[in-house]
Design a binder for these strands. Structure first.
Lengths: 226, 226
DNA sequence: ACAAAAGTGTTTGATCTACACCCATGC
DNA sequence: GCATGGGTGTAGATCAAACACTTTTGT
């Protein structure tokens, strides 16, 4: 009864990173048909013995060498003609990763020539329906950042309040008031002041903070509005 | 390259209805293996030339005779062993429908013996991973009701403020203050007072309202917090 | 000394919460 | 006339928004 026609399912990932004050996503240059040489979101066909979450983690790991990353499934794209070679459902995930330091991207596996971080405001034309997948992913994190502490996933462990505000501004696409932002953020009590200053900057060094997951966990249930 | 193993995808629907002061979902009694005679969410394998949204609407229409219903995809379940006969991804949708009047359920198609409305607090054991699918669906509408006007989808066109409050209480699972609730709801300006009273009740008749979609549409972009 | 970003409070208006009684109707 | 739900206002607390100057540091 089961498979009545040829079909498959794939995962596509929108992997956000914060670097040099810009919000970027990871794109690959495809090395296979269809859409050979096009830019695309990292993605892959799901393996026979792989759950969706596993498959998403694998793709991310293969491209970045990173594991234990915040990823979330957010939508499934299933238009009949979205893939030229057959019926392929795509389950979309987003991830938020720390680009701090100099974690190089891994030299890429078979399905991509190379991977690059691209500013979300300067995306090239994308393969398949990947523009649509990206759009919906961005929309999701815009909503989610208001109620969940996802901004911290994009920052190094130690960060300044200005960096944090920067991320909120980039994702929500509005300017925020510095004083009000700090007051509110600190009022939640989930930022730990590290008694430590930024180094290597040519101006007054800012205080470093860490996101305190334990304290956040204790708030669970209480709706937070960042 | 495409289909490397036998797989298929299905849709499962959590169809919420509000009836006699209770929040219910539609369950079917399965008439096919696997899980023959078990209770399950309405669902079906997606057809070859059917998009996911189309498939979800079709399932709902076949069971209830209703069309033009608010449905939304909310999650895709893809554990390797979730279906005993092979690899079957399930894309889950929820719908909110007006049970008002006496729309009977259609006598059921092949895959179900019968369909029933079941109070969400008294669900039987469900087939497959349907309990998990339901749980996530309920969680979704709990969140969504705070920001989107989905409660109105469950009510007849003309409704009283008490009925509306009732739905908020059932979904969010808390008691609300009557005065505060009314003040807030009316303050959005999306309820139209119909200058008309409830009929056939054995106590003071309540004013009927209608949800004004046009006015709501004009608020678009502004975040509402119901 | 200047450039660059860090850091810091107060006022005003809006919104949220808690709370209790009289009203209209059908029986 | 009584039972049932309909309908209404206020005070206090909390939260959100607007707004500008001084401090620190490196060059």
């Amino acid at each position: 009864m089961l498979p009545q026609f040829n079909s498959a399912f794939s995962i596509d990932c929108v992997i956000f990173g914060f670097d040099a004050g810009e919000l970027k996503i990871l794109l690959i240059e495809r090395n296979e048909e269809p859409f050979k040489d096009w830019w695309a979101l990292p993605g892959n066909i799901v393996g026979e013995n792989e759950s969706l979450d596993q498959s998403a983690s694998r793709i991310l790991h293969e491209l970045t060498g990173l594991g234990d990353i915040y990823m979330e499934q957010y939508y499934t794209f299933g238009d009949v003609a979205r893939h030229p070679q057959g019926r392929v459902l795509s389950v979309a995930y987003y991830a938020l990763i720390r680009l701090g330091g100099d974690k190089a991207l891994k030299p890429i596996s078979n399905y991509a020539k190379q991977a690059y971080w691209v500013n979300i405001k300067e995306l090239p034309r994308l393969a398949f329906d990947h523009q649509q997948i990206f759009d919906k992913g961005l929309e999701k994190i815009k909503r989610r950042i208001k109620h969940q502490p996802i901004a911290f996933e994009l920052l190094p462990e130690k960060f300044t309040l200005t960096q944090l505000q920067n991320i909120y501004e980039l994702i929500s696409d509005k300017k925020l008031d510095k004083r009000n932002f700090r007051k509110k953020m600190l009022s939640f009590g989930v930022l730990k002041d590290l008694d430590e200053k930024q180094k290597g900057v040519s101006f007054r060094a800012a205080t470093l903070y860490r996101f305190d997951k334990r304290k956040y966990a204790k708030l669970f249930g209480k709706e937070i509005s960042f």
